[in-house]
Amino acid sequence: MTTTDRSAQAARIALRTAAAPLAAMLLASTPLLITMDRYGAISFTPGRALATIGQWLAGLADGSSFMYTIGKTEWSVLKTMPQFALTSYLYLALPGAIGMGAGLCLGLWTGRGKGGRIEAVGHTLYAMPDFVLALLLQLAVVFVLDAWGIKLGSISYNPWDGPVLGLAVVVMAFYPLLRTWKEAARAARDASASDYIAYARSKGLPERLVRMRHVGAAIVPKMEADLPLSMAVMVASMFIVEYVFALPGVARLLFTAGFPGWNPGWMEGYQYRVVVLCLITTMGVYAAAWGTLRLILAGVRRVLTGER
């Protein structure tokens, strides 16, 4: 990539980042575009959506846009959001790193041969939806508890200071692991057939060194290229995992505080203020986790190649 290309790409990323809060404001206003009266008649109400956006923008100055209620208690996003964001970040970055690390090792291992059935099994499991996996894990725990009468751990919890929830980490690490495994095995096979690997082997380098320095180093760029897609899958899973396992993260806050009146409920309880801030924070969490995983991959590459 030339310097001009890099500058153009940096400009595009900066533009998208600047546009992100606007996108969040518009998306959060979509439920307000349609209004249903008590007799069930629907009307299109863009004025209502625009007025809400205007009120939110005006409220940024006096701080009212940062307030939301749960039940009868009023909270400030400025005080509570960092904790929610940290939880989401941890359940995104930690399992992401674990999954990608394990996937890299598996890819290096199975990439030596043709792959065959074990990779086919991994590929098939990847098609299993995240919410099905979460529910199956919960069912499995309940069955084990019933069968053995022992408590293995909680299947969902809500404390701020509790330990990391194992099942949630398993679900979150599952998809990056399988995706990285598939990509890494393919990249390892491609690299193994290349001339520079054959040359390294012909020079008598130990097989372990060849795999680490050459094959491993060839895989990491592929993982970096695939990171946006892996992250997209992980963020979708984050919304499901936080909701199913009752994790106190941003995604759960969005649905529990943003739509408080829905179970049972209707639009009367919709809190635009907290929804728009949750969406912006989710994008921030995504960016932070993306940056973290990029750094980890860069570190892995340095360790494998011995570069400084």
């Binding site: 790409q9 595009r12 998208r16 980042t17 992100a20 963020v235």
Partner: peptide, 14 residues
């Protein structure tokens, strides 16, 4: 080359 975009942080099902 699309590169990084924060909008990808909002899943389509949301």
């Amino acid at each position: 080359d699309r590169g990084f975009t924060p909008l990808a942080g909002i899943p389509s099902f949301v």
